[in-house]
Design a protein around this nucleic acid. Structure first.
Lengths: 143, 143
DNA sequence: TCTTGACCTCAAGTCGACTTGAAGTAGGAC
DNA sequence: GTCCTACTTCAAGTCGACTTGAGGTCAAGA
């Protein structure tokens, strides 16, 4: 009776049941059986969902995440991939830091228009050169 | 002759021309005229595109970004909104920082499986509780 | 002058990650 | 035994941000 009903998993993991079915269809999670029609899950699914959530936050697609699990279901993540993702994330963080500072400055700046503020323009130039440099990358979910 | 052809803008800003047309349709940028059929842009559009790009990186939708420009085209952003966005961004940054550190650790951790690493499990727990607590938010584009 | 190729418009398609709707079913309360 | 409700399946819809395709135009080079 340690098994969890889909509703229980949904509640504990903070995702709708439809998402759990969707993840199952994609092979990201598996139910351990049914009670009547209802899916029952091993409590370990919560950990797995947390892993999926962390991966999503880090910017992995569901397909990428799926490939991070060994056939036996154990997470077997390539450490090189992790390190690369950490680096990428670090670049994003620095970029967002610049942006945050720009926003803060613009909020406090007394210039009548932000475009007349040298600090703001400098930040924009920095953002522009970074944008021009890099190829377009995929999304990273916040929160 | 300081005006820029759409191809030039696309190249310099690092976005395809189709995106520029799309942004124009959405009212995010404006062309200053045409040479034959071809859009010509004021060099200032590059700055504006940088602003748009920065906003996208920060997770703002194009509609949100559009609302940050006054009808005259000058960025005239409500300073309170800016300050609030800066705060939000700051929270995101801190979250991503934790995630980055976790990734770095997992990459370096000697445990045979990440699931046997207490730090990794701690990260998962943290991620899980955050996920369970908060509503789902929108995406933030990296790079 | 003629060709070429990069641009043009407009509608429709794509992609990821889900969500929603219709129609059906079973376990538990009464 | 019957009813309610939360689940079930499967297909289709949604949303944001673009991209693609078909059919057309025009400035510049051969």
């Amino acid at each position: 009776m340690t098994d969890l009903d889909i509703a229980e998993v949904a509640h504990r993991a903070g995702v709708p049941a439809s998402t759990l079915r969707f993840y199952e269809e994609k092979g990201l999670i598996a139910s351990i059986g049914r009670r009547g029609l209802r899916r029952q899950y091993d409590p370990g699914v919560l950990e797995r969902l947390a892993l999926i959530g962390a991966g999503r936050t880090a910017g992995f697609s569901l397909d990428e995440i799926g490939r991070m699990f060994a056939p036996d279901g154990q997470p077997r993540i390539d450490r090189q991939v992790l390190a690369a993702k950490a680096e990428e994330l670090d670049r994003t963080i620095r970029e967002l830091g610049v942006l945050r500072d720009s926003l803060r400055h613009a909020a406090a700046c007394p210039a009548p228009s932000h475009m007349e503020c040298s600090t703001f323009r400098r930040l924009l130039k920095a953002a522009a050169s970074r944008a021009a440099a890099g190829a377009r990358k995929r999304t990273a979910r916040r929160s």
